[in-house]
Design a protein around this nucleic acid. Structure first.
Lengths: 253, 253
DNA sequence: AAATAATTTTCTATCATATAGAACAAAATT
DNA sequence: AATTTTGTTCTATATGATAGAAAATTATTT
């Protein structure tokens, strides 16, 4: 999340609350939303009809839901990112090649945001979708980005946000994380050894452009398929190589 | 666009204006936005910082821009649509098979909204992206949907929105459009013969589920590649067949 | 490096308007 | 048909969105 607004527009904040609730409930009625958000029906109705006028909300049989305008804005933003445009084909290729789940992500507001994913033939099924967020310290993607970001930004991220522990193996401690980042730099790529999800390992390499971290690419697979030589050589090589290709292609745009 | 709100929340409307401006400008500063929207800098700043707090906006070197939260919400909405989930693989397959550009779309607020597209090997390059909108009467997708929608809804759409003429060949007249829709039903699929873009033809079939139109699928190609037998037999057969597969798969979900 | 300009952010008073609650209308349910 | 539930409109009032100015920050120039 971004920093707190000094002079927030409360009506806007209320609107965003309604949108968040609509996402959670998928379809919801005015009454239901008013109760959940502890406000009056007229307020909810006013906000919803304002949103609907601009296609951010749709009215259906079962009440209101998120509109497709979000898809337009989100897709627009993603398409503006060279990381996405250059990364997508490489992600697809790597998924095909490894048969596993491949992701690219970028950092936003100190969080790891998934941009695109591609499933290989035997890939695990995770219910993470584009646009969703994870703490930087709990993903290989986040750690490979942190490892190569400027110190001051790394410090702000580590200090500001809490470092949640998703599993037993998470680096939830500031010092341990810093050591892990050093090890990542040494290695050239990051490993998530069941730090985010029991039974899941990931290998991730950063994607950089003249010193700046654009994002990262990763391969995720069950622990029993990502071990030994595949964990230490084959997959890391492919991941780093894919990252390098994206870096090279990103120069020309 | 949805109907006009009776009691719009003006602050929310202002927020949406700012978001729309951010999309147009890609990156913009507070001053620039305030001038463009004819309001004060403090207002713009308050709205932006409220949006940023919730990840709907990001602050960068060159000012503010759309945040990745939109991607999350848009992707979420699209994933909830069986049309998308069942349609995506068929769209990919059809693009591979025909080598052309393949789209699926749904109707929202009387407009044709693109949901997903896949490029075949030799496909044209159109700068339409997922979430973007077109008038129903100017696309094969829109016409194939209209042709099979309930009369009252068709009437509302034809009467409410204006029928823009994108090219010489567009069906901008209400009566002509109705005849074209009848012809489409006769045929079983819709044709866009340079009605949206000079030099571009499209073939589209509706995707239905017990009487309800879920959306449509289309193939777009240059006029010189979509003519004769390919226009009258081969491609329509494939499009209709893909639509049928999606319909069948949609039953189980 | 100092000075100046431009831009962003904070502050404050005031008037517009977001809000709650009630009344009404429309569906849904019995 | 009657009743409950839900959605929409209306209105008064107190809240807070807004404009404008001042302060702080950043960029540009000398």
């Amino acid at each position: 999340m971004g920093d707190e607004a000094k002079h927030p527009v409360k009506a806007t904040a209320r609107t965003l609350e309604i949108i968040a609730a609509l996402k959670q409930l998928n379809w919801a009625g005015v009454t239901e939303l008013a109760e959940r958000l502890d406000t009056s029906k007229s307020v909810v109705h006013n906000h919803l009809s304002t949103l609907e006028e601009h296609d951010y909300v749709v009215k259906g049989e079962e009440g209101y839901s998120i509109g497709l305008r979000f898809l337009e804005m989100g897709g627009y933003r993603r398409n503006k990112m060279t990381l996405y445009r250059m990364g997508k084909p490489e992600v697809d290729a790597l998924a095909e090649e490894t048969g596993e789940l491949v992701n690219i992500a970028a950092e936003e507001h100190g969080q790891c945001v998934y941009l695109y994913r591609s499933r290989g033939a035997q890939s695990v099924h995770l219910d993470i979708h584009a646009g969703e967020r994870a703490a930087m310290n709990t993903t290989a993607l986040g750690k490979s980005m942190l490892a190569y970001m400027h110190d001051d930004r790394v410090n702000r991220i580590i200090e500001d946000g809490p470092l949640p522990a998703a599993t037993e193996h998470s680096y939830a401690d500031s010092e341990a994380l810093r050591e892990e980042l050093a090890a990542t730099r040494e290695r050239g790529y990051a490993i998530d050894d069941e730090e985010r999800l029991e039974g899941l390992r990931c290998v991730s390499a950063p994607i950089r452009q003249d010193g700046e971290v654009l994002g990262a690419i990763s391969v995720s697979a069950p622990t029993n398929r990502l071990k030994g030589d595949r964990l230490e050589q084959t997959v890391p090589d492919k991941v780093v190589s894919a990252a390098n290709v994206i870096e090279l292609n990103s120069v020309h745009s």
